[in-house]
Design a binder for these strands. Structure first.
Length: 596
RNA sequence: GGUCCCGUAGCUCAGCUGGAUAGAGCAACAGCCUUCUAAGCUGUGGGCCAUUGGUUCGAAUCCAAUCGGGAUCACCA
């Protein structure tokens, strides 16, 4: 039984009895009492003064007195202006705490218990360059939201749609052919994705040089961009690729293979994974049937030049081309086709989530609207998990210009920072080398992941590479540290925690009560995070919990507490705290060490 | 120009389904380790919540306008 509901239904009865006002429990809003006042929950009395025909203060007094006399869990109340603050008894909170203890994974619903199946797409890299900070945000966000949805009992299918074809891929291939001299990851010692990325940058350099050369010889800029020889070669290569030219296909396979080897390493380090991979080289022709279907349903129309379009001006969007005049498809065509395919392939999915940056907000609005107009019922269950760009102090990152924060460098740098800090603390002298490496990875990646996930996904975020990510304060390691501290106490206690029982009638220390109250919120936090697709909700909650534990730790001793009943209670209390920290951090894809 | 998103402490961010004196962290300053891990805890300073108007008993929160920042409006992906 939810505490707010429990109180609200009592209050609705009381208000009805006292003032004759019929009010549903759901309409009563209770809020947590602010720190500076005494009490657990607060009722704002302003909405009821019309019915009570008294001042807000008197209204509060009357409701409070009635509640006190009818509800044994309420032991005290006070009224400040129009605010009625209610205090619940220690035993009430202790019995809530027992409920928390009784569940092995408090707040987390059993796997696949909701019966709802959701497909979530994330990552979606191009195979022409290595992953950068922007991809890191995408990957962490997608993985985290998937994990959070799983806590609600949903069956989540994580998919990755790899953009493995197109003109941008050919750019790296052409540059490698022209300037590569047969260089391979083995011969260069470069990670495969970095090697391919090097030639993507190389292409841009050569292209720009050719453009400048043409401009110097009197060609207009626009003309030069089209006529640059290297660009013509690239377009020729794309045509050959589409015509299944064996030589091009095998070059493509080889270079993509290098990229996949590189990605696999980065994904592993990031700790993300997928249930199914899609490749655009397989899906890029999809959607033409949907175009035909749309034409016959008169959703689309043919234009004078034979291209096919849809008019969305009535929906405050523009006209959108869905098939070129030469009959080839555009980006949105394959997105339409892919979506339709997926719902055929997985008939039980009830929701489709796309983790894509907010620069594509418009694209997804158009996509979902078209699907709706084509008559697909599930179109309204498609959701664009839109997130803000990661910006550097100098502005946006640009792959072609090399002004990106590379994902591998970033991760290695964080792990190195974690190593330095950890070693200087001198706490891990008894660790084996293997354990140390694991710990540095856990802490470094924890810092990075928390740094990115604690901010609201839809907001753009700033990253300054010159200021390394902090390990103190509101950070991943802060939370990991709180967890390690708890585990250290539990080890020293040398007791079987499951065998312990919490006694009634304890007097609760302020911080103990706060810990119970905050732990009690965990399931609500998870469902809120799931409903809003927002890992930051979990991140900020876990931080609050860790901070509260640290305060408790400073004020109350666990193992040195002489009263055994209290000691037992405290052991249970910190054990559940640790479990929630661990499960919460797991939602962010962050591991927590037993010792650090 | 149209549409969408964002403006909260020096910096990075919470709070936004309307409620009490707007919160954290970093940075600065001052304390706390013979006591379960100081990656910690406590305290001090720091705010016209972009501006103006409206709705309300009550607005950082809702509405409108204005100013600033960003994205997008391709037969690119």
């Amino acid at each position: 039984m939810n505490v707010e509901h429990f109180l609200a239904s009592f209050i609705s009865q009381v208000i009805n009895e006292l003032f004759g006002l019929a009010i549903q429990p759901e309409e009563i809003t209770l809020q947590k009492t602010k720190k500076e006042f005494e009490g657990d929950y607060t009722l704002v009395t302003f909405p009821y003064i019309k019915a009570s025909k008294c001042s807000p203060e008197i209204t509060g007094e009357r409701i409070g007195e009635k509640l006190l006399s009818t509800n044994p869990s309420i032991i005290k109340f006070n009224v400040v202006k129009g605010f009625l603050n209610l205090s619940l008894s220690n035993d009430f909170w202790l019995s809530e705490f027992k409920h928390i203890c009784a569940q092995s994974n408090y707040g987390i619903k059993p796997e696949k218990s909701s019966g709802k199946q959701i497909m979530l797409e994330y990552s979606s890299p191009n195979t022409n360059k290595p992953l950068h900070l922007g991809h890191v945000r995408n990957n962490l966000l997608g993985y985290s939201v998937a994990t959070i949805l799983k806590t609600q009992g949903h069956d989540v299918i994580k998919v990755n749609l790899i953009n493995d074809r197109g003109i941008h891929i050919c750019k790296s291939m052409i540059a490698w052919k022209l300037f590569g001299n047969g260089e391979t990851p083995e011969s260069s010692g470069l990670k495969g994705d970095h090697l391919v990325g090097k030639y993507y940058v190389e292409f841009d350099r050569a292209y720009k040089k050719e453009i400048q050369h043409l401009i110097d010889n009197g060609t207009s800029k626009e003309e030069a961009e089209k006529k640059a020889p290297i660009m013509l070669k690239t377009q020729e290569m794309l045509q050959k690729w589409e015509a299944h030219d064996q030589e091009i296909i095998s070059l493509w396979k080889m270079m993509n293979g290098w990229v996949y080897e590189g990605f696999a390493i980065s994904y592993k380090k990031l700790g993300v994974e997928f249930d199914k991979m899609y490749y655009e080289s397989n899906t890029y022709l999809l959607g033409k049937e949907a175009v035909q279907e749309g034409l016959s349903k008169k959703v689309f129309y043919k234009k004078m030049d034979n291209s096919v379009a849809i008019d969305l001006t009535a929906d405050k969007l523009d006209e959108k081309i869905v098939l070129r005049s030469d009959g080839t498809s555009v980006y949105i065509t394959q997105d339409l086709g892919t979506a339709i395919e997926r719902f055929k392939e997985f008939p039980h999915i009830s929701q489709m989530i796309y983790t894509v940056g907010n620069e594509q907000d418009y694209h997804f609005k158009v996509l979902f609207k078209i699907l709706e107009k084509l008559g697909y019922q599930w179109a309204k269950e498609c959701y664009h998990l839109s997130y803000g760009m990661v910006e550097l102090p100098e502005g946006k990152m640009k792959s072609r210009e090399g002004t990106v924060v590379d994902a591998d460098d970033l991760m290695d740098g964080m792990i190195e920072t974690a190593k330095e800090t950890t070693e200087s603390s001198g706490k891990v002298s008894d660790f084996s080398n293997e354990e140390k490496e694991k710990l540095f990875h856990t802490i470094g990646m924890g810092a990075l992941k928390y740094f990115i996930l604690k901010v609201d996904p839809k907001k753009k975020m700033l990253f300054d590479p010159k200021e390394s990510i902090d390990l103190h304060g509101n950070t991943g390691p802060f939370i990991q540290y709180a967890h390690a501290r708890i585990k250290s106490i539990l080890r020293d206690s040398k007791t079987d925690i499951n065998g312990l029982n919490v006694h009634d009638g304890l007097t609760l220390h302020e911080k103990e009560k706060e810990l119970i109250k905050l732990q009690y919120d965990f399931p609500k936090i998870l469902s809120e995070a799931a409903n809003t697709y927002n890992p930051a909700v979990v991140a900020n909650y876990i931080y609050d919990l860790a901070r509260l534990f640290n305060q408790f730790y400073n004020e109350c001793s666990v193992l040195k507490e002489p009263d055994l009943k209290i000691q037992t209670f405290r052991i249970k209390l910190i054990a559940t705290t640790a479990a929630i920290i661990k499960n919460g951090m797991n939602c962010l894809g962050i591991e927590v060490p037993e010792k650090m």
